[in-house]
Simulated assay, not measured.
Amino acid sequence: MLNSKKVAFSVALALLVAAPAVLKAQTDEDGIMMDKKNLCIGATYMHGSWDHYWEGTFKRNNQNLGTVSTQSVMVMGTYGITRKLNFIAGAPYVWTHATAGTLHGQHGVQDLSAWLKWDALDLNVGKGVLSIYFLGGGSLPLTNYIADFLPLSIGLQSKTLSGRLLVDYQAGNFFATASGTYTGRSNIIIDRNSYYTTSLHLTDKVDMPDMASYNVRAGYRSNWLIAEAVFTQAFTVGGFDIRKNDMPFPSNKMNSTMAGIDFKYTLPKKWNALSIVGGGMYTLAGRNVGQSTSWDLGAFYVLDFSHKRSKAHTSASEKK
Rank of each mutant, 00 (worst) to 15 (best):
R217I: 09
P92M: 08
L152I: 08
S131Y: 08
Q233S: 14
Y169V: 08
Y53H: 12
D296F: 15
T99N: 13
Y301E: 08
T177I: 01
D122M: 00
L39G: 10
T198V: 00
A218W: 09
E228C: 03
P250Q: 05
V167A: 09
K253W: 13
A312N: 13
I41T: 09
W50M: 13
C40A: 15
G155A: 09
R243H: 06
D111N: 12
L142G: 11
G290L: 02
F134E: 05
S213N: 13
L274F: 01
S162D: 11
F9H: 08
K253M: 04
Y45N: 12
P209Q: 11
K5E: 00
P209L: 03
L284G: 05
K244C: 00
E318Y: 14
M1W: 04
S153K: 07
F175I: 06
D296L: 06
W118T: 10
I276F: 13
L202E: 15
N38C: 01
A178I: 09
V129G: 15
Y145K: 10
A91I: 02
T266F: 11
H201M: 00
M258V: 08
T232M: 13
T78E: 06
S315I: 12
R60S: 03
A229Y: 07
K269L: 11
S199P: 00
V289F: 10
G260H: 09
Y145A: 12
K311Q: 11
P209N: 11
S131V: 01
F87Q: 02
A100W: 08
H201A: 03
K159M: 03
G138S: 13
D210P: 14
T183H: 02
S292Q: 08
F249Y: 06
T102N: 12
L297T: 09
I154C: 04
S139C: 15
S179D: 14
T257L: 04
I189T: 04
I188V: 03
D207F: 02
L130V: 12
L150G: 02
M254E: 06
Q170G: 07
H307G: 05
M76W: 05
N86K: 01
V289Q: 06
T78I: 01
S139K: 14
M1Q: 05
G239K: 07
K253F: 14
W54G: 02
G66T: 12
Q63S: 12
I189M: 07
S275I: 01
Q110W: 03
